[in-house]
Design a protein around this nucleic acid. Structure first.
Lengths: 333, 333
DNA sequence: TGAGGGTATTGAATCTATTCAATCTCTTGA
DNA sequence: TCAAGAGATTGAATAGATTCAATACCCTCA
């Protein structure tokens, strides 16, 4: 009926051998008579025996599993990253356990509680003091949202400043002369860096952006939609091009413009950043900056596994994006 | 420097008490002198002690964790479901471990290996024989992609047949007379049921759909886009309304229609099923059938936890959707 | 003063699987 | 025939935590 938990002891009794022998048979330790081994395997299979992982991992001091810690699982970034990390783990023979977390305690419990052999962390809840503890624990960990580098701590991050530069150069090359910047969150690192890169490029070209043409979209579609409508109500002249610091925000801006009857890109060009799924599907399709989340995930696992298997030291990897030009931007004379 | 693994033994030695006393202090067993307990807690904190979960779970025969097994983590359905399951687990005080899987062995290893106390499974790789083993194991499990019901096995599924009926009735009430059906996959249960519900409603109203107006979109945007272009090239009269069995497919159909210069909904109405994120954002926004993944996730966890805590028996829950009317459908005279 | 009783603490068993040294069995060769 | 050696199997220790019966201690009261 139920509660039928088969242990190695049951297999041993049923097969008429010792527990050690069953263990050897199951772990391919090549010292058994083939007939003994086959018999044990047959019995184990018949009883639906599956090793208790708690016992196994306790003794082995290893789990063959990697943990991925994220604050959310919704959204293109998270799912693309999780997916590429999954693929990489799979190719390398590791199990992947994904944990969603809204505080760092659970993360520390899983990592220091030895339920995994290594971790990838994308979670701003983890603070400096916890990083120090993690470093001290010797557990190999790769951060994908901050720059860290030590014996057992590594990171794979994007160059947000460069993304801002890319957009600035792209828009200038297309002949745009006046600009609007829709910011993300004021104290978000990526937001600050994208803005800095963008504005520096413009400044170097002798272009300044008036404060009236900068507002906070908070990386959010609805917020930007409303912000854009407010801007349009002021009846100021439209800029040649708008840079929204992420695609969700850019879509919100485009919706507001379209709802007010403006044509994109004829009246104004719009470019975002991130290349989320909707960007390609929206009409007009959105120009943007693509960074490879797949590459980020793969590099994170590569690094984690070389720390795990070869005892490699953690390093810091910085990835750069590239512009994807679509319908929402146009060449201006 | 590193590899610094603190065990309960270290805490006991440092605090000058026995291992049992440390265990009692940490687990709030109320038999200790407050000063002893506080001292132990202080030492444990100072040493950054975190219990080894393998040891703890082995002895306790419980993990306080629920496993979610999915074949993928990308896509609106998976992420919405995972998110609602996460929220429910969190509210109930359980950890959630998400596992992506492309075969059933890993699932069986985790579940029968006792690394979790219960599971939610959305994974067609799990076959009948494995379900029998799971049932026999007594482990509480909720399936969200198939109907199962036994002492420790439960399910929460959608009524796809009813979804098809909803669309049929909705389109008939809007005055549509001729129809096109874009199917999903021929041997997919949801696809079969949605088609059956839709066509039955039409048949009961005396309407038939010619085979020329039925094609397979495989639940896929690109495939449907191409299929729709092929259809349009035949220059057959457009139907009043098109039902695509999922939203991705409906978006593909709309893209083809728009690219050929047709107007939606003036020339033809389009309705999908699933209410994915893009549906609301696309222009025109897509009418569709909404089923609550959030509710599905919450019910799955409700059920799982009552099996876990109260030893409740598994039941079968069937959820129904409702039509969301947006810009892509119109009233016809 | 010493038996009885309550409270705080500890020792030892236990959970399951792995590992390695020890044992047992069989064969071979002097 | 028996020692040596090879090969197969087993016993016992171990991993880190929990649990419960047992002990130690202190106080009270006859």
């Amino acid at each position: 009926m139920s509660g039928n938990k088969v242990t190695i002891k049951d297999v041993a009794r049923e097969a008429g051998v010792s527990i050690s022998t069953v263990s050897n048979a199951l772990n391919n330790v090549d010292v058994l008579l083939p007939e003994t081994k086959n018999h044990i395997l047959e019995v184990a299979h018949r009883l639906h025996y599956v090793p208790n992982l708690n016992g196994r991992n306790l003794k082995a001091k290893a789990t063959n599993a990697i943990g991925l810690f994220v604050t959310s699982i919704t959204g293109d970034y998270y799912s693309a990253l999780a997916d590429s990390i999954y693929q990489s783990c799979r190719n390398r023979g590791y199990d992947l356990h994904i944990f969603i977390s809204d505080n760092s305690e659970a993360i520390m419990a899983q990592i220091l509680g030895r339920r995994i052999d290594g971790a990838v962390i994308l979670d701003e809840h983890v603070g400096e003091s916890e990083i120090a503890i993690l470093e001290d624990s010797g557990m190999p960990i790769v951060f994908v949202d901050r720059e860290v580098e030590s014996d057992n701590l590594a990171s794979v991050v994007f160059d947000s400043y460069h993304e801002g530069e890319l957009v600035g150069n792209f828009l200038l090359e297309k002949g745009n002369k006046t600009f609007m910047l829709i910011r993300g969150e004021r104290n978000n690192f990526d937001s600050i860096e994208r803005a800095r890169g963008f504005l520096n490029v413009l400044n170097n070209a002798g272009v300044t952006v008036d404060d009236k043409y900068i507002f906070d979209g908070l990386f959010n579609r609805e917020v930007t939609y409303k912000g854009m409508l407010e801007f349009l109500d002021k009846k100021l002249p439209l800029p040649d091009a708008i840079f929204a610091e992420n695609d969700a925000s850019a879509i919100g801006a485009m919706e507001a413009l379209l709802d007010r009857g403006f044509k994109i890109p004829e009246d104004v060009s719009v470019i975002g950043c991130d290349d989320i799924e909707i960007s390609k599907l929206f009409r007009p399709s959105l120009s943007t900056v693509r960074t490879s989340y797949e590459k980020q995930g793969a590099l994170a696992i590569d690094q984690l596994i070389s720390m795990l298997k070869e005892g490699a030291k953690g390093t810091k990897i910085i990835l750069r994006g590239s512009v994807v030009s679509r319908e929402s931007t146009i060449e201006r004379k």
